[in-house]
Design a protein around this nucleic acid. Structure first.
Length: 558
RNA sequence: GCCCCCGUAGCUCAGUGGAUAGAGCAGCGGCCUUCUAAUCCGCUUGUCGUAGGUUCGAUUCCUACCGGGGGCACCA
């Protein structure tokens, strides 16, 4: 008895009820209901049963009937379904359904049999999705803002894959613009012993880079004219910086399928082709010596320069070519994660999407995440690459480790700003919920090991024996997992996975406290013990699957 | 001025129209000769920013306002 089967049954009952009303003349029009409208909810309050539906209140008005009366009719039908133990009508017209223990408990075996596939779905089967995230400029170590998107983006990629999508993780590597020039000038200045340029970067890493470039460069650097020196520092320095970023992300468990260089768009003519395409569509015009894209046609605040009057391409020109390139590579959906400081850019990107004839929000979707604030002893610290007051990926990992770091960044909604107090994170790691979840997993493994040595095996499976309150509660939560994964994918909100496994871990701990898998002392091993082992292993599997979607390890022991 | 996000327990935050709004932390008090006490149990805390509106039902949707954050370049 899966929720899907139950809601299908309820849907059928609703259709028949509507039919009866229509024949009796009390209902006229077709309500146009689909199965999706007949949702089952898992009530917060366990007294309200295993599943509840509010469908009678939703259709009562259209049927001109009392919701409680309708609920009563539906309840009578539901009670006939095998596996349903009891049905009650409550409050204004809720239908509360209680399943038989055997019907609910069957899930434990279903999960164990499905293994790591439990919870996966097919929402995006056959869909190619490009997920672009981090894309930090290689002008310094990756800072907390970027780290947040690394954790969230990678997790989102995993969630989308779990729903069947063919996902490409992509990093847009900006090696073209003036920020790179500033970086090069800063490194050069450090090498020459000059003060940091006014618009340059001032962190300690700049002199490290300068030293390394000097080591790596094979010619006589000192003999070169200044502009050639700068080019050496630019090319080797960017390379060093970029390699470091890649390595750090890798050690954080985040690997990209494609590193896309902005330079390549300009070199390959992709930008020009994109502009040409837009020109054909009539969205390009010239004014004041510059070339513009008429984004106001598609709701942008103002039109946008794409080629400056100097002939230099503006930043957005790269995005024109880039987006077209992604579409030509066959991606059905292109997701881009940006920080809130780039939100002003969304309007023109969506306008561009429409100018190409695509649908904003479908072919191209910008996910805006709020900023990360650094806090020290309760005081906000302004993060700035230029001032050198940055907290890097390394600082985070050094302070709390990869698992706790990833978990902390992914467990809150991207719509909320997060405050990071490294002092606090560093000394109070036990407060992090990740350990609560990991401990629950380790416990399931420990129980499994002890079961093996005590002769409790997953031979018999008698789900009708799982009658303890904590068992039906645990089963109810386990049943929700596939819906949580699907929701996380649909809403692009991986934090829902984290919140879910925290809840699951709580239900597991309480079950563990109440129900023994291994018999005490000389007591014989019974089918109840064996069946509970199934439930134990099923729970471990789901926690493991959930942690996997977050890129957090599921330890065997703690 | 315009746009986006947030405002929920002392703190950090969950809760995409359902029933008595939840969790962790912090505080107080309990449970280890029995599968891991990083667990569990009990106690305590709310004008869900404010005011309207839509709805059988609003923390959730709409409008206005207040407060915090972030944006509004021929920068990237």
């Amino acid at each position: 008895m899966t929720p899907a089967e139950l809601s299908q049954s309820l849907f059928d009952l609703v259709l028949r009820l509507i039919e009866r009303r229509r024949e009796a003349g009390s209902a006229s029009a077709d309500l146009g209901l689909t199965v999706a409208d007949v949702t089952l909810e898992r009530p917060r309050n366990r007294d309200h049963g295993d599943w509840a539906s509010s469908i009678s209140m939703k259709i009562a008005k259209a049927l001109g009937a009392n919701p409680r009366e309708i609920a009563g009719e539906l309840a009578a039908g539901l009670e006939q379904i095998p596996g349903v133990a009891s049905v009650e009508v409550a409050g204004p017209g809720f239908i509360n359904i209680r399943l038989e223990a055997a019907a609910a408990g069957a899930l434990a075996k279903t999960i164990v049999d499905a293994g790591e596939n439990y919870g996966t779905g097919s929402t995006y089967a056959g869909i190619k999705i490009n997920l672009e995230f981090v894309s930090a400029n290689p002008t310094g170590p990756i800072h907390m803002g970027g780290v947040r998107w690394a954790a969230v983006g990678d997790s989102l990629a995993r969630v989308l894959k779990a729903e069947g999508a063919d996902v490409t993780r992509e990093y847009y590597f900006n090696d073209h613009g003036s920020q790179i020039d500033r970086f090069a000038r800063s490194v050069l200045a450090s090498y020459l012993g000059e003060p940091t340029p006014e618009d340059g970067y001032g962190g300690a890493y700049i002199s490290d880079i300068a030293n390394k470039v000097v080591e790596l460069y094979e010619g006589d650097l000192a003999a070169l004219p200044r502009d050639e020196q700068q080019e050496v520092f630019r090319s080797i320095g960017v390379d060093l910086m970029f390699t470091e970023i890649k390595d750090k992300l890798h050690s954080f468990g985040v690997d990209f399928d494609v590193f896309f260089h902005e330079d390549s768009l300009h070199e390959s003519g992709a930008v020009e082709r994109a502009i040409e395409r837009l020109r054909e569509q009539g969205h390009i015009f010239e004014s004041e010596g510059a070339i513009w894209l008429r984004t106001t046609t598609f709701g942008d605040d103002r039109d946008r320069v794409i080629i400056r009057s100097s002939g230099e391409p503006a930043y957005i020109s790269g995005d024109l070519g880039y987006y077209l390139d992604k579409r030509e590579r066959g991606f059905d959906q292109n997701l881009v994660m940006l920080g809130a400081d780039h939100h002003g850019y969304v309007g023109r990107l969506m306008a561009m999407t429409e100018a190409f004839g695509d649908i904003p929000g479908q072919h191209h979707e910008i996910l805006i995440g709020q900023m990360v604030n650094l806090v020290r002893e309760g005081e906000p610290v302004r993060m700035s690459k230029r001032a050198g007051t940055i907290v890097t990926l390394d600082d985070l990992v050094d302070a709390v480790g990869v698992d706790a770091g990833r978990y902390a960044l992914v467990r809150s909604s991207s719509d909320s700003q997060v405050d990071i107090d490294l002092d606090q994170w560093g000394k109070r790691t036990n407060d992090n919920p990740v350990f609560y979840v990991q401990y629950a997993h380790a416990r399931t493994r420990s129980v499994a090991r002890n079961a093996a040595t005590s002769g409790v095996e997953r031979t018999a499976f008698a789900p009708e024996l799982l009658t303890h309150d904590s068992e039906s509660a645990l089963l109810g939560v386990l049943q929700e997992y596939p819906r949580i994964v699907a929701l996380a994918a649909e809403l692009r909100e991986p934090h829902r996975i984290a919140r879910y496994i925290e809840e699951l871990a709580g239900y597991y701990h309480r079950w563990y406290d109440n129900c023994r898998v291994i018999p005490l002392g000389d007591e014989p091993v019974t089918d109840l013990h064996r069946t509970r082992l199934w439930l134990n292993d099923a729970t471990g599997q789901v926690i493991r699957n959930g942690l996997g979607l977050l890129g957090v390890s599921a330890p065997e022991r703690m």
